[in-house]
Design a binder for these strands. Structure first.
Ligand code: NAD
Ligand code: NAD
Lengths: 213, 213
DNA sequence: CCGCTCTCGGTACCCGGTTATCGATTCTAC
DNA sequence: GTAGAATCGATAACCGGGTACCGAGAGCGG
C-alpha cells in the first residue's frame, strides 16, 4: 500500500467521525471523494479493497466503514508506548489525545533532567531515563516516541532497541540507524513548513502570471 | 508537482547538507538515489527538471544543487510569520530552528492567556491576541502558524484572514474553512502515529506469515 | 595518446494509480 | 406497478511517475 493511499484511508476516517457527529448514518462515495479531491471511482475502489459493500442509492454505512478502516490501521488495539524527552514538545504530546486515536496507550515518560524526574504530567510520572531499559523490558513495551535533541537521539535509540523496542516515532531531525525489522516513522515538522513555503511561492508566481494576461 | 516529488526534493536538500558537512563537494545520482529508495534515473530526472547539469564521472556539484533546490522551494527568503497559541506546542516551535530552515522569519507571538502575555520566549515577547489584527496589518505579515485548541482555531483564522494573512500552518485537528486563494497546510501529527500503527500491524502479519512457511 | 570505465542526459517502456464508463440495483414518485 | 433517478460494482482506458537502457562525454591508467 502506497503512502498516498494510506493517507486517504486516514482522511476517510477523520471525515467519517465528523459525519457521525452530525448524525449521519450513511455516506456516498462522491461525498467522500470531493472532500479528498479525488473521484467517486477512486473511493469505491478503496472501499472495495477492504471488502466493504455499499448499497445503490444509499451509499455506505458509516459504522461499517469506521470499523473496517480502523481495524486495517489496527488503531482499535492499545499498544503500550513510551515517550522519551519531556521537553516542550514532549509535554504537548503527553497532553494531546492522539495516542488513543491511533491505537496506542501512553504508559511511561522518561527524561534525564533531575528537575523533571518525579514530576507528573497528565497523571503520568516522569521516570529517570536510567531506568528506561528495565521498565521497557518488564512491561514488554515495543513502541517508543522520541522528543529529544537530535544529538542525543541515536544513543537513546540504541538503548531502546536493546531493551526490545521495535517501532519508533521520531521527532528529532536526524536519520536514525536501526537494525533491520525495526520501524522508524519520522515526523519531520520542517517538511510541512517547507511545503508551505513552496506552495506560497507557486501561488505568487501563478498570481503574477495570470495578472499579466 | 506531486507531493511525493516535492518530498524527494526536500530529502535531497537534507542529505546534501549532511554531505557538505562531511566535506564533500560533489555527489552522484546513485548516491542520492539509494538513500531515497529510488533509482538513479529518477534522481537525474528530478534534477534535470530543475535545469541542473552534472558532469559524467563526477556527478553534481553540491553547492549548485543546494541553491537551486532551495530557490525552487523559496526557502532562501525570510517571509515574516506569526505564531498564535503559545502553549506547550507553540513554545516547542518557537524554540526550534525550523523557521529559518524553511524560509520563514518568526516575528510575532500571540496568545490570549493573561498569564502569558508580556512573557518572553526565545527573545520574542508574547503579545495580546487582541492586538493581533493591527500588528499583522502594520507589519504586512502574510503567514501564520496555529498552535491552539481546535475549537478556537476557526475564529482565529477568520480574524487572521481578515487582517491579510494568506497562508496558514495549522496544528489544530480541524478542517479550516478559508476563502479561495488562502493556503492551508495541515500538520496532522496523529497521521504519523496512525501510519506507525499500520506499519506495525503489517510487519507483525508478515512475520507471522513467514514463520508459518 | 588510446582505450576503459564511470556517470550523465535523453528516450522508450512499464506499471500501477486514477479516471471514465456502463450495466445492475434500489429507492422514490406518481 | 412502472418509470426514473441515483448510486454501486466492475472493467476498460488513460496518464504520469518510475525504471531500464543506450549513446555521449569526462576522467583515469597504461
Ligand atoms: N523535527 C522537527 O521539525 C522538530 C520541531 C521541534 C522540535 N524538534 C525536536 O524535538 C526535540 C524536542 O523538542 P523540545 O522543544 O521539546 O526540546 P526540549 O529541549 O524542550 O526537550 C528535550 C528534552 O529531552 C530531555 N533529554 C535530553 N537528553 C536526554 C536523554 N539522553 N534521555 C532522556 N531525556 C533526555 C531533556 O531533558 C529535555 O527535557 C528537539 O530537540 C528538536 O530536535 C523537532
Ligand atoms: N494535530 C495534532 O496531532 C496535535 C498534536 C498536539 C497538539 N495539537 C494541537 O495543538 C494545540 C496546541 O497544543 P498545546 O499542547 O500547545 O495546547 P495548549 O493548551 O498548551 O496551548 C494552547 C494555547 O493557545 C492559547 N489560546 C487559546 N485560545 C486562544 C485564542 N483565541 N487566541 C490566542 N491564543 C489562544 C492558550 O492560551 C494556550 O496558551 C492543541 O489544542 C491541539 O489541538 C495537535
Amino acid at each position: 500500500m502506497h503512502r498516498e493511499t494510506l493517507q486517504r484511508y486516514m482522511n476517510y476516517l477523520l471525515l467519517l467521525t465528523k459525519l457521525k457527529n452530525e448524525g449521519r448514518a450513511t455516506v456516498t462515495s462522491d461525498e467522500l471523494a470531493v472532500r479528498e479531491g479525488v473521484t467517486g471511482s477512486r473511493v469505491r475502489q478503496d472501499l472495495s479493497a477492504l471488502r466493504i459493500l455499499g448499497k445503490p442509492r444509499q451509499g455506505y454505512r458509516i459504522a461499517d466503514l469506521e470499523i473496517l478502516i480502523s481495524s486495517m490501521l489496527d488503531i482499535l488495539s492499545a499498544k503500550p508506548v513510551a515517550l522519551v524527552g519531556i521537553g516542550n514538545l514532549g509535554r504537548a504530546l503527553v497532553l494531546s489525545d492522539i495516542w488513543s486515536h491511533a491505537g496506542f496507550d501512553l504508559v511511561a515518560l522518561f527524561d534525564n533532567d533531575p528537575a523533571l524526574i518525579g514530576a507528573s504530567v497528565a497523571g503520568l510520572p516522569v521516570r529517570d531515563a536510567a531506568t528506561m531499559e528495565r521498565f521497557i523490558q518488564e512491561q514488554g513495551i515495543e513502541s517508543a516516541c522520541l522528543a529529544l535533541p537530535a544529538d542525543k537521539a541515536q544513543a537513546v535509540v540504541d538503548r531502546l532497541v536493546d531493551a526490545g523496542v521495535r517501532a519508533l516515532w521520531n521527532f528529532a531531525l536526524i536519520d536514525l540507524d536501526v537494525p533491520a525489522g525495526i520501524i522508524v516513522e519520522n515526523q519531520r515538522l520542517e517538511q510541512g513548513l517547507m511545503a508551505l513555503s513552496f506552495r506560497i511561492a507557486k501561488r505568487n508566481q501563478d498570481d503574477a502570471r495570470s495578472s499579466q494576461d
